Computed example of a mutant assay.
Amino acid sequence: MIHTSAFHSRLRMAVEARGLSLERIRGRLAEQGVTVSVSTLSNWQRGVSRPGVDTRRVVAALESVLHVDDGALTRLLGDGPQAGRRRFLGPGTSMERLRALRAKLEVSERDLSVVAVADEAVVAERDRIRLMRSRLVVRADRPGADRHVVFVHANQRTLPVLRSTKGCEVGRTALDAEAGLIAAELRFGPLVRGETYPIEYQVERMESGAYYGRWIRAADVRYELTVWFESGSSVRSAYRVWRSDARSPHKDVCEVRLIGDEVAHMIDDDPNPGFHGIRWT
């Protein structure tokens, strides 16, 4: 199984199988002359960050400490889910701008975790998105958590309309016109710590290119995306795309079959952090 899944999941499984704490793993790496912090190891196994080129020696030493085959972990550190053809599809989302918008709404990102996302995009004439629907499952990380912030790419001339459809109400909003971003607060009843809760919303009047997807920032988030093509569209093909950060272009991962010439679908139970989506031509 170590050869067939994401790096952070396989690392976590190897750690659990070995039965060592991260502090003991850090100590055994130090005995080999390899220095790495417990927080870095924790981030790697949670998918918050990935080892860079300069830390591949640490990963190789980890394989020895965890008693896995040579290369079992390092070979999972390729550039994203799969190598593929790069395509530039516009700039990504700046984390600094997202944090600034969230700060305007005074909502802490530590209150909730998103554990599952299901997006639906409806494509009409000119192969542009007419409507986007989302269902999120959030988990309360503290007692009393009662709101979640979502971000939508906007157009300065025509702002999209965000509506709650089930389980929540739209509260305050904040706009970054220069970046073309809107932050919206979704409110619901206070949750008990550890409790999960579904919320649904939709976005209308979107100005977008011929693709849709979502940034996955943390580990253990199940992501599903369905793109529906109405009769007025002229779509001929669709591709799953991925990008590691806001500075990188999208990369084609694989072609997605158009089922009945009207729907493209993808699902990932354990996606790498980054942008995951579908583009069409």
Score class of each variant (00 low, 15 high):
3 H>T: 14
5 S>T: 15
13 M>Y: 12
13 M>Q: 04
16 E>L: 15
18 R>A: 13
20 L>G: 01
20 L>R: 04
22 L>Y: 09
26 R>Y: 09
27 G>P: 03
29 L>R: 01
29 L>E: 06
35 T>F: 13
38 V>E: 07
41 L>H: 10
41 L>G: 14
47 G>I: 08
48 V>P: 00
59 V>E: 04
62 L>K: 05
62 L>W: 05
65 V>E: 08
68 V>P: 04
69 D>K: 09
74 T>F: 01
83 A>H: 13
91 P>I: 07
94 S>D: 14
99 R>S: 13
101 L>D: 11
108 S>P: 08
108 S>E: 11
112 L>V: 13
114 V>I: 15
117 V>Q: 07
123 V>L: 09
123 V>A: 07
124 A>D: 15
126 R>P: 06
126 R>T: 10
127 D>P: 08
128 R>M: 02
129 I>W: 03
130 R>S: 14
133 R>D: 10
134 S>N: 09
135 R>I: 03
139 R>F: 06
139 R>C: 04
142 R>W: 00
143 P>W: 03
145 A>D: 05
145 A>H: 00
146 D>I: 06
148 H>G: 03
149 V>A: 00
149 V>K: 05
150 V>R: 10
160 P>V: 05
160 P>I: 05
165 T>E: 02
169 E>G: 10
169 E>M: 13
174 A>D: 10
176 D>F: 09
176 D>W: 12
179 A>S: 15
180 G>I: 01
182 I>V: 15
183 A>C: 00
192 V>I: 12
196 T>E: 12
197 Y>D: 09
206 M>K: 04
207 E>L: 04
207 E>D: 14
207 E>I: 13
215 W>P: 03
220 D>G: 06
220 D>Y: 01
221 V>G: 08
223 Y>H: 03
223 Y>R: 06
230 E>H: 01
232 G>M: 09
241 V>C: 07
243 R>P: 01
244 S>L: 06
244 S>W: 03
253 V>N: 00
254 C>Y: 07
255 E>G: 02
255 E>N: 01
255 E>K: 08
256 V>M: 00
258 L>S: 02
263 V>D: 00
263 V>P: 03
265 H>M: 11
270 D>Y: 04
273 P>S: 10
274 G>Q: 08
275 F>G: 04
277 G>L: 02
277 G>N: 07
278 I>Q: 06
279 R>F: 10
280 W>L: 01
